[in-house]
């Protein structure tokens, strides 16, 4: 599925600016996660219209882009996330980052690995469900 990434500076009001832009564009946000260093951060988001969101953000002067990530459905019970991550760990696939999302009321684990082809194999051989957005 498609993820929107925005380059942000660590200063007051930046995230508000990103979210206000998406609000004005009428975007439904499913997940948001921020990774930061001392001066900058990357804000990653899942929403109902990634292309539209990216365009709106660029129009507002943000540096943003779309990349592909996996969103695997979790069971709403303890240990579900651990079980999914363990499948990748045992297959030797590293996870670059992950965060959770609620899409249509269901919990998902959003992540990017260092090996997309292997990740697809793991998803299908273990009968995992990918998000349809």
């Amino acid at each position: 599925m498609k993820q929107v990434s925005v380059f942000i500076e660590n200063k007051a009001g930046t995230v508000v600016g990103v979210l206000e832009t998406l609000k004005k564009a009428g975007m439904q946000l499913y997940a948001i996660s921020i990774a930061d260093t001392a001066e900058y951060g990357i804000c990653r988001m899942i929403c109902d219209d990634p292309e539209g969101a990216c365009e709106a953000l660029r129009g507002a002067g943000f540096v943003s882009s779309i990349t592909r990530v996996f969103a695997v459905r979790m069971d709403d019970q303890p240990g579900s996330a651990a079980g999914i991550v363990a499948m990748f760990a045992s297959a030797g696939v590293d996870i670059a980052y992950l965060y959770s999302a609620i899409i249509s009321g269901e919990p998902f684990l959003v992540f990017r690995t260092n090996d997309s082809d292997r990740a697809v194999e793991i998803v299908s051989s273990n009968g995992l469900t990918l998000a349809e957005v």
Binding site: G61, F62, S65, T67
Partner: peptide, 14 residues
């Protein structure tokens, strides 16, 4: 300042 068009290819990390 960076030129936004040079990052349009896609990034999801810093």
């Amino acid at each position: 300042e960076v030129r936004p068009e040079y990052f349009a290819k896609g990034f999801d990390t810093l």
